[in-house]
Amino acid sequence: MSSTAKLEPQEPIGAYAAERPLIELRNVSKTFGSVKALSDLEVAIQPGELVTVVGPSGCGKSTLFNILAGLEEPDPGNILRLKGKSSSASDLLGKVSFMPQRDLLLPWRNVIDNAILALEVEGMSRTEARKQAREMLPEFGLAGFEAQYPNQLSGGMRQRVALMRTFLFKRDLMLLDEPFGALDALTRTMMQRWLLDVWQKHKRTVLFITHDVDEAIFLGDRVLVMTARPGKVKLEQVVDLPRPRKADIVTSSEFIALKKTLLEAIEEESMKSFQVSGH
């Protein structure tokens, strides 16, 4: 539905090369009143990558996500390219599958009908959408639960329903905002392993926010460490651990070395943000 009043002409199909980033942000800043949340942020994500983002709290991670989800417009003067085509944030509405921190399941819809919410919005018939969702249930560990309502589910299950809703909304880029943040440690590691399985099978591009460094390394191809406010990318760390990753990888020396580097970077920023808020 986007008008073709954009400066750049539409890319011919096929010109989109694998080396070209799926999404690219340059000089992206965002100011709320007197608070500068993001400052000259630069991020590029290749197709099929799983990029994790860590940073001290209040570093503008969520603002970055809202921009990528099309919910917030960055300050003027930014460059935002989706598949090489320059866009405004609102063009991204409906182009990115976004999963917020809370599961936000609708209490009056059962598991299946919550999962197909995005498909319904797209205009798919309920029968067809339910059929697609039903096929995905076993993979999400929800077989036999399709008729349950959210208040009958555990936290981990609710999160899986929310993830299923995100996966069913088939878009090139998936944004996951601390999806496992509210889960207990054991459930969380199970969910991480499971997410990697699903991701490898579906070949999606994922941007994953977390404040858990272990999680960031375990899942990511690359880890982006953000600075304290105003947020920008402080460190871009490639995680060259082989895939598929086993649970015991977290005790390997490579993993520990990566963790050390990342923790140092985060520590430095956390100290800064404390000093800023201290005076």
């Binding site: 989800a69 182009k95 936000l104 919410l117 319904e120």
Partner: peptide
């Protein structure tokens, strides 16, 4: 409001948000 934002990120129009979120 986050629920509404989620719907918007799916590309939902006002009428869809009204029927699927506000009214229920």
């Amino acid at each position: 409001p986050r629920q509404v934002q989620l719907m918007r990120s799916f590309g939902a129009k006002d009428g869809q948000i009204l029927r699927r979120i506000y009214l229920p």
